[in-house]
Design a protein around this nucleic acid. Structure first.
Lengths: 230, 230
DNA sequence: CGTTGTGAACAGGTTCACAGCA
DNA sequence: TGCTGTGAACCTGTTCACAACG
């Protein structure tokens, strides 16, 4: 649970707000002005009760018997998410993935501004992407301070991640989105969201194995790749 | 909860198995042969009770008073995750992100084999990445069938995602890792894991807003500037 | 002894079902 | 009438604390 102002919002709710916001923006684009919890929930991939309960943590935005005004609700969620103020973003680690993330075009529309690209590899330093030049990580502290960076996307190799993260935190950054597959040890007040592509694939592999185990069992009784039983 | 063989494993547990596996591989690399639940938990970023409970769903792997043998445990988890058999992988949508994902080098080591790159853009078709040539999505069904693809990474623009996903499912693929920021409407037996970079940033923004609201409130009631430590 | 494996207590999140209201 | 907002019931997952045991 996360406190904001005098309200408390469950972490699970916060993690769904971006879905609602996206669905609302799609509706706006399509010229829809009013929607209902069930219609919006379907677009967001959740249940309608879930959606209403989530919104109830932020306030009361709908009209009973009618539904929600798309534009109003979108801006309310947007405000709750803190997208009113601009967040200045740096990408540290500009390999394949960091480069792809730099070229992502959706930052500005969502209140983020990419202001620095940083890497340790001399071959990468000096390259340009997204209108920025990649700068050397020796100057990391200087750059983060000068550009007023408040959020960092960390896309370094795993071996470098912990050390770099510590330097970043030392600069006062408290929100990090990490793509490095390591559990970062950082002070409690630092928020780290972690995206791990290989891990996601492994989770899918587990589901595949479960499916095959079941089919194997029901179809012909032979063992499919399964858990080492107890 | 997910059934595999005669065992039932909570989804939350499955989502942590990759962390444990990674930590174990790091230990192996460092030549460590034995570890304890608390040491392994620390490396994985979870509590030790959590780790032991998670492992208990898969079986009993440790020695009381001693701990776990790193290699044995790693291979047990690996088997549970279905990484024994090879999973044939296609990337659909080879833009910035798809390209970066194609160049990721860790697939083979984790039991995945990238066997096709597919895109709808004629400018992209024909390019090479990771030893493969990008092929046109007109031939998607043909390619997935011929290569025995069982898992797909979907990295198309949002507008195309739903339609492409339906074609993929039609080919018998039941595990999809999507990077497109839309809630895919697919049959219940299809497992979709979704990674949304913009969404993750928005969640971080919420945390930043919460932090500022608190500081602003306690400091002087006005909105506080940047997060200079607490 | 020291560490695992696990029942039992707890916490958090989801779903239900309906009262409240335009 | 129909949809929102929400207390209460339910369910899932986490943490505690200790018995089991090499």
């Amino acid at each position: 649970m996360i406190e904001i102002g005098e309200v408390t919002v469950p972490a699970a709710t916060v993690s769904r707000l971006p879905y609602y916001l996206r669905a609302l923006r799609d509706l706006l684009r399509d010229g829809v002005t009013t929607t209902s919890s069930s219609a919006l929930a379907e677009r967001s991939g959740v249940g309608s009760a879930q959606l209403r309960k989530d919104l109830s943590y932020l306030g009361s935005f709908g009209t009973r018997g009618v539904g929600y005004e798309v534009e109003t609700l979108a801006s309310s969620i947007s405000t709750a998410l803190g997208l009113g103020s601009e967040h200045r973003l740096a990408i540290v680690g500009v390999g394949n993935l960091g480069n792809a993330l730099a070229n992502y075009s959706g930052y500005a529309a969502r209140g983020f501004r990419l202001v620095a690209l940083i890497d340790a590899d001399p071959d990468v330093v000096g390259r340009r992407a997204a209108g920025l030049e990649v700068e050397h990580s020796d100057r990391l502290e200087e750059i983060l301070a000068a550009r007023g960076v408040s959020m960092v996307i960390l896309a370094t190799p795993g071996a470098a991640a912990q050390a770099v993260a510590e330097r970043i935190v030392e600069c006062g950054v408290r929100e990090i989105l990490s793509f490095s597959p390591v559990a970062l040890q950082l002070p409690d007040d630092v928020v780290v969201r972690s995206v791990d592509v290989a891990g996601e694939l492994q989770i899918l592999a587990f589901h595949a194995a479960a499916r095959h185990a079941q089919e194997g069992a029901t179809v012909d009784g032979r063992t499919a790749p399964a858990a080492t039983a107890r």
